[in-house]
Design a binder for these strands. Sequence first.
DNA 1: GTCTATATCCGGATAGAC
DNA 2: GTCTATCCGGATATAGAC
Lengths: 183, 183
Amino acid sequence: MLRRGFGGFAYQHIAVQLGIRNAAIHYHFPSKDDLGVALVQRYRGGFHAWVADLPSGWSSWQTLRAYFETYGRYLQGEACRLCPGGALAAEFETLPEPMRHEVRLLMRDIHQWLSDTLETGRREGVLRFQGQPSDKAIELAAALQGGLQTARLIGTQRFYQLLDQLALELTGETPACDAGAMP
Amino acid sequence: MLRRGFGGFAYQHIAVQLGIRNAAIHYHFPSKDDLGVALVQRYRGGFHAWVADLPSGWSSWQTLRAYFETYGRYLQGEACRLCPGGALAAEFETLPEPMRHEVRLLMRDIHQWLSDTLETGRREGVLRFQGQPSDKAIELAAALQGGLQTARLIGTQRFYQLLDQLALELTGETPACDAGAMP
DNA sequence: GTCTATATCCGGATAGAC
DNA sequence: GTCTATCCGGATATAGAC
């Protein structure tokens, strides 16, 4: 789904990879909508687990940098995947309503976490940005999601440069993560 | 296509709106691929025409602000459309190769124009940003495209706030366009 | 150039054996 | 829980009349 979108993948794709028949998938997920909803719920649960597992000693910038790296990971392998939010927001109009609801929840949680992290980071002096944290959060999320999509057109290297650019603006210095050197 | 994506719209949708039959569309565009390629070419031509029509007296910030406003226009009406780049980059994997080529050209032209505009604006002192113009151009384009997609989830108001946020960072002051007051 | 009618294919979904 | 076989709807595409 992260490669082809919800409307772009078929039971057949899964069946071939698992070496089963698509009827077997229908046993676990009666309709494609059910499968879609379960996937988004899994993504959201994964995000919550990721946030919960962050080392408590990390600064806001360290956690934000780690979040950037999760996006870099979507490009690893020959897959060139999108982030869940980017794949699903783009085809939001054609999604069944139950999926739309889950996507809204996922996006809300990400924005909330980003906003909190940005606010804390600025208060502690490790992050710099103008405007409201909630607005900056939406800008960051949009840039990451749009950049990931564009990476498939113009090359992954450009996406790592985008990560560096975002880091440069947030910290005011050359990024410590050196995303440009990532694989 | 800007609402449902290339894979998400059918000849039927067009036929109903035009009050014709889908066979009539096939007369003009034998295959859906042909229609898709023609659409992207039209978008690119429209962008070139838009750039060519910019008043020669405008500053870099005035033209950039006008570019932002074209994105705000995608949200007008009840359509809630995406920008061509955002709609097509998201489903790039499933696009036929001739369309991919056109999308790459469109994205390249937009990035090039943005980069040039940013560079000029900074040199003339009307725009402020860190890093290379080419990197900032990709960040801007990604934020606009991702933000437009996200607007359908969280409301158009948030997108206008994003435009304000981008303007604030580029000019260092409250945006003159007051995008937050747009319809 | 547009119509009616139809061919063709694909993907989601179900029935029933095992 | 997975299989084979089949149904069904939707979408691209074509043939031929007008």
